[in-house]
């Protein structure tokens, strides 16, 4: 249960950021969409309450009305306790104590959530990429869904890394899955943990890599980086990156949005056109990929043939 960011701007009077540091990681989030915006139904900052849930006091805490510091790795327990409190069920106080919060703090949070006219929960990688991973995300989404029995409540992941949302969207409509897709059998198969990039690289399953709009050489675990350096790796990037340094081929491309046109998807999956203010001597990513594709298409196929015709 989610919404576009304009809904948050116009309606949200109760905003939770969980496991994220928007002040530093999404610096325009406060000013464009949430607490600093004047909305159609929320006249000013005072009309909104902001809660920050994190394991340490980041600069975002200054902007918040309530800061809840929880024990690292206890997100799932806190969310599950909140879900129980929302439904008025009993909770184990010993387990609550382990989370670093008191039952009064949690009950107060639940009361405020229920009193809100329009609540929103933004969750960052501090929730979705720590202990529990997708279980945490599922729990937080379940919490938001269940809150709708009492008031309007939505949740949204705080996505970053350029146009990751756009890649997710396009893969979904062309293959049915958002990431971790294997096309080796001629149709899409999905298995995160097996076919996702990091797992393929760490296991060393792939014998070539084409890297577009990403810098795995800076973020992947070392065995994955070592594997990228071992195999023919091709990088398309406007600038020199960690990955381009270890690649066999680096094709310099125009920077999308600066000197190449395109479409970017916002974290709420709203597409925005990019109009480049500058010209570039380099080709766009799209043009390079198209030319590679044309060249590959000219090569004889791997497909078995019968009487000179491709078998169906």
């Amino acid at each position: 249960m989610t919404c576009t960011l304009g809904e948050v701007k116009n309606r949200a009077d109760f905003i939770i950021y969980w496991g994220g540091n928007p002040a530093e990681c999404h610096p325009r989030h406060f000013t464009k969409y949430t607490i600093m915006q004047k909305g159609k139904f929320v006249p000013n900052r005072k009309a909104r309450t902001m809660v920050l849930v994190d394991i340490r006091e980041t600069p975002s805490a200054k902007a918040s009305d309530i800061f809840l510091q929880i024990t690292p790795g206890k997100d799932f327990e806190v969310i599950t306790t909140l879900r129980a409190l929302v439904k008025g069920q009993r909770v184990n106080l010993d387990l609550v104590a382990e989370t670093g919060l008191t039952i009064e703090q949690l009950q107060d949070l639940v009361d405020r959530m229920k009193k809100a006219r329009f609540g929103v929960l933004f969750f960052g990688m501090g929730l979705s990429m720590t202990r529990g991973k997708h279980m945490n995300s599922a729990a937080v989404l379940a919490l938001a869904a269940e809150m709708n029995a009492f008031t309007k409540f939505v949740a949204m992941p705080m996505r970053g890394h350029g146009n990751v949302t756009g890649a997710d969207v396009v893969l979904r409509y062309t293959t049915g899955y958002p990431f971790g897709i294997n096309m080796c059998r001629g149709y899409p198969r999905f298995n995160p943990g097996e076919f996702s990039t990091v797992d393929l690289l760490v296991r060393g399953d792939n014998d070539a890599a084409l890297i577009l709009g990403a810098d795995p050489g800076a973020t992947m675990p070392q065995p994955g980086i070592d594997h990228l350096a071992r195999i023919p790796t091709i990088v398309l990037d406007p600038k020199v990156t960690h990955t381009s340094r270890l690649s066999r081929v680096h094709i310099t491309t125009a920077a999308t949005g600066i000197s190449a046109p395109g479409t970017v998807y916002r974290m709420d999956e709203i597409p925005l056109p990019l109009r480049p203010p500058l010209k570039s001597p380099y080709p766009s990513d799209e043009e390079v990929i198209r030319r590679i594709h044309q060249a590959v298409a000219k090569r004889p196929g791997w497909r078995p043939t019968l009487n000179g015709k491709a078998m169906r």
């Binding site: 062309t174 293959t175 049915g176 096309m183 059998r185 001629g186 149709y187 899409p188 196929g301 497909r303 491709a310 169906r312």
Partner: peptide, 15 residues
């Protein structure tokens, strides 16, 4: 669970 559409010279892959 759905029928896969195999990539071929005439067709794009899909589900």
């Amino acid at each position: 669970a759905a029928a896969p559409f195999l990539h071929s010279p005439e067709r794009r892959a899909g589900i």
